[in-house]
Amino acid sequence: MPVDTSQPYDDSNIFARILRGEIPAAKVYEDDWALAFNDIAPQAPTHVLVIPKGAYVCWDDFAAQASDAEIAGYVRAIGIVARQLGVDTPGYRLLANCGLDSHQEVPHLHVHLFAGRKLGHMLVPE
Results as ranks from 00 to 15, higher is better:
32 D>P: 00
77 A>C: 07
97 N>R: 08
36 A>K: 03
52 P>N: 07
3 V>M: 01
54 G>D: 02
93 R>Q: 07
79 G>M: 05
66 A>I: 09
79 G>F: 02
48 V>I: 14
4 D>H: 06
24 P>A: 06
45 P>S: 04
65 Q>W: 02
23 I>W: 00
107 P>C: 14
126 E>S: 12
51 I>Y: 01
44 A>M: 10
47 H>R: 07
126 E>D: 13
87 V>G: 01
38 N>E: 14
77 A>F: 01
111 V>L: 12
50 V>T: 12
56 Y>I: 08
77 A>K: 00
54 G>Y: 01
96 A>L: 11
51 I>P: 01
117 R>C: 10
71 I>H: 11
11 D>S: 15
34 A>Q: 02
115 A>I: 08
42 P>F: 10
16 A>G: 14
49 L>S: 09
37 F>G: 07
83 R>V: 11
99 G>P: 09
90 P>W: 00
2 P>D: 12
35 L>I: 12
5 T>P: 02
11 D>T: 05
118 K>D: 15
22 E>N: 04
1 M>S: 14
72 A>V: 08
57 V>N: 01
55 A>K: 14
92 Y>P: 02
62 F>I: 08
125 P>N: 09
73 G>N: 08
47 H>Y: 05
63 A>R: 13
114 F>S: 03
62 F>A: 06
13 N>S: 04
33 W>C: 10
37 F>H: 05
49 L>H: 08
69 A>L: 12
64 A>C: 04
84 Q>T: 12
61 D>K: 03
95 L>G: 04
97 N>V: 06
22 E>R: 07
